[in-house]
Design a protein around this nucleic acid. Structure first.
Lengths: 111, 111
DNA sequence: AAATGATACCTCGAAGTTCTTGGGTTGTCA
DNA sequence: TGACAACCCAAGAACTTCGAGGTATCATTT
């Protein structure tokens, strides 16, 4: 367990879906938001997020759309699809189950 | 998120440490116990566990010792070390923190 | 007691994933 | 026009997992 990498990796896709379920967003902003929430526990690199976004798009769980921001700059906004919401709730459930079992197994006798 | 693999991968080492913190054990038995606890949510293969055990040993978080079981058979028992216990509690804490943030991010507005 | 089959245990190589590194473009501001 | 910030992406390196197989022990049969 060299770094937090392994902890983080498992959940990238679920987190992104969660963020997009609240509100459409674009890669750069997703990174910012998640890193803010993570508050130092872990930190995403930009390069980490884009491949996952592309995969989610390919799987039709999100849909991408270039859009002009009020700044005049072009941004690639991602919207979660209906299938994406389904996947999100399924995965969130699975995550909870998984975490419960881990917690139980890791629970030590003497605190 | 093709399978449970990614969910599972993050925590293999922590889980093993947790199991060994309760009681020394050997590879085959660890697999059995964890799979029983996982109860279908995921399932370890034997080949998955041994590399991790070896890495933990190399990192001095566990210590291995061949021992004769009551059946007369030789088994390689793994014991958690003091450093291993430290790592376990550190990682368990980190896991909790991590999971809390994920839960918060994944929480959807409408259930 | 020798042979056979089943069980317990471990290792190694191949395959598939993810992250990191680093780069490339567009717009803003001095 | 130079520097900096916002924004996006590709490819290789590094990691893990899976699958197949190898060895040793026990039980059974004859």
């Amino acid at each position: 367990m060299k770094s937090d990498k392994e902890l983080v990796g498992a959940s990238t896709a679920v987190i992104i879906l969660g963020v997009l379920a609240r509100e459409p967003s674009y890669g750069y902003q997703i990174v910012k938001r998640v890193n803010e929430a993570a508050d130092g526990v872990w930190e995403w690199q930009e390069g980490t997020v884009y491949p996952v976004l592309h995969k989610l798009e390919k799987d039709k769980l999100v849909r991408a759309q270039w859009q002009e921001a009020d700044t005049g700059r072009q941004r690639k906004y991602y919207y979660i699809t209906a299938a994406g919401r389904d996947a999100l709730s399924t995965q969130a459930e699975r995550w909870k189950a998984f975490n419960g079992i881990v917690a139980q197994l890791v629970e030590t006798p003497h605190g």
